[in-house]
Design a protein around this nucleic acid. Structure first.
Lengths: 133, 133
DNA sequence: TCGGTGTGTCTACAGGTGTAATCGGAGAGG
DNA sequence: CCTCTCCGATTACACCTGTAGACACACCGA
């Protein structure tokens, strides 16, 4: 595996869990944010309480996925890893695990299971044309 | 725990974990197999021991993902759920979680991150053409 | 200066997962 | 018939995850 970093303290590359991912989404969308602000974004939708958010934030900091920046008496959190890196990693993991690394197989499967809308198809076609140039 | 009647598929949709998935792959490829045969297929590659395989098999049976069929004094295991169902579910989960349900976004991401080989592109193009018919 | 309010850290705990040792019963061999 | 062996089932245990309470401390306002 291409793990670009070494390890120690806040090593990036630690696995981000599902609940943690929800937190990351908020911070990818807008950052830096305080714990309270993050809670404002997710506590209602996910039914979480403040302590839960704080735990998740701490774990993410521990995993090296978030940076903390002292602002006044509180901390502001910002992502340390790129959303596209995470998304890419997860996508690749899925493709590897389920389709033997063949992205075309994933596509074929989505196509067969009619998970692709006309809109999807149109856009993919467009992208494809663009790449072929 | 009281299984009064022979009802095994009563809890479909139970989450299949990563290690369990490896077992499923073996059985999707070839079935029915005994525990020993499954172990032959995965124990070396994954560094598992027989007890581990048996535990995973039991859990899968418990989850309603495998059926057991007594053959002589041993049991033979067969998948109860289709590989395509599992794969489809996992794919959709990923697309939902990471791309807001838009499969085109997944494709775009794979394209951008150059995870698509020329071969992939060719095949996707072909599939696309076929669907458009 | 003193208390309240907000913030991060520590602790907790149930359920799932990875991994494996051990037990108990059903045949196989002597 | 008795023992050995093989196999599934049971039990074990550490770690991760989801969820949350309790605690300590710093600052703002009175």
């Amino acid at each position: 595996m291409s793990e670009t970093s070494g390890e120690a303290g806040g090593t990036p590359g630690e696995r981000i869990s599902d609940a943690e991912h929800a937190i990351m989404e908020v911070l990818w969308d807008r950052h830096p944010l305080s714990a309270a602000e993050v809670c404002d974004e997710v506590c209602e939708t996910r039914g979480w309480s403040m302590p839960t958010v704080k735990t998740l934030l701490s774990r993410l900091v521990g995993k090296g996925a978030l940076a903390t920046e002292p602002a006044g008496r509180k901390f502001l959190y910002s992502p340390l890893i790129e959303r596209s890196d995470y998304v890419g990693g997860e996508s690749r993991r899925l493709v590897d695990r389920l389709f033997g690394g063949r992205a075309a197989s994933l596509f074929a499967h989505l196509a067969e299971s009619e998970a692709l809308t006309d809109e999807d198809l149109g856009e993919i076609e467009r992208l494809l044309k663009e790449m072929r140039k």
